[in-house]
């Protein structure tokens, strides 16, 4: 290895370490500041809680055997909504690609539905699907479905026109064009939509749990608010941050594996 290469790698590693140290520093600074401000009543400890209280609250949840139940319920609902949303959006996108007139007709409605805050449909979903897990999953599917359809369909329509002409010169049918060209060449777009879809599913699940649930992190947050246990609320929020980060990273890892 040349000296220039060694120096380049050294610089790269130093930069990476500096970024990591800054991230740890900012996190620690924030937690210590939060703890100190709360302890000295500079911020209201009842409303804003403190890191030590949050840790205690999470330990209590663990001792009561509730912690992993709530985490699991949220993850389970998110994954189900993610898979359902993905399968439906993939199939719908194929139909919208094969039938351009249908796409043109539905484009307006997709745009409207995409900009609609789906939580507004919550009460209706509860009436139709019942006050149970089904409603939560339906809400999460609705939230991730429209975005995924828009992204994947857009990817399909961006297929290289020259390659489509080539397929036509071989006398390919529309289905063959989709099978041999459109789907494989949109592979990156489809995989990239996974990341968007998992985040949207989590948002949908938590929104659903706010409205109707007996377990889950959304339930913890809303229950904590109702009984004025702000330690529980902040614990729920922090757990959600950690879970959404882990889910995102897992999907990102799967994406890298699939794109290899």
């Amino acid at each position: 290895m040349s000296n220039e290469q060694k120096s380049f790698i050294k610089k790269y590693k130093i930069k990476k370490a500096v970024i990591f140290m800054w991230q740890v520093f900012i996190l620690l600074f924030f937690l210590i500041l939060w703890e100190v401000l709360s302890k000295h009543n500079i911020i209201n400890p009842f409303i804003f809680s403190s890191p030590s209280k949050v840790v205690k609250c999470i330990i209590n949840l663990y001792k009561d055997n509730n912690l992993f139940i709530h985490i699991w319920v949220t993850i389970y609902e998110t994954l189900i909504a993610f898979v359902i949303g993905l399968v439906i959006s993939f199939l719908v996108s194929i139909i919208l690609y094969l039938y351009n007139t249908v796409y043109k007709v539905l484009d307006l409605f997709l745009t409207c539905l995409n900009s609609l805050p789906k939580v507004a449909l919550g009460p209706m979903i509860i009436i139709i699907a019942g006050a149970n897990t089904k409603s939560i999953i339906v809400m999460a599917v609705l939230i991730n479905l429209i975005v995924s359809i828009v992204v994947i369909t857009d990817g399909f329509y961006n297929t290289d026109k020259i390659k489509i002409k080539l397929m036509n010169s071989f006398g390919a049918s529309k289905y063959q064009i989709v099978r041999y060209l459109v789907i494989p060449s949109s592979y990156k777009t489809i995989i990239s939509s996974f990341k968007l879809s998992i985040s949207m599913s989590l948002i949908g699940v938590v929104s659903g749990e706010f409205l109707v649930s007996k377990a889950g992190l959304g339930y913890l947050i809303i229950y904590g608010t109702q009984v004025f246990n702000l330690d529980l609320v902040i614990s729920g929020i922090l757990l959600l941050v950690i879970i959404s980060y882990i889910l995102y990273r897992v999907v990102e890892y799967i994406e890298k594996l699939l794109l290899k």
Partner: peptide, 28 residues
Amino acid sequence: VIGYMLQEDALFEHYNILDNVLLGLKIK
């Protein structure tokens, strides 16, 4: 039977060279 070669090579990156060359036969 008509063979058409385009301005660009239009090779499919998701296939290897052999699969690219066999594409027309698969379609037909």
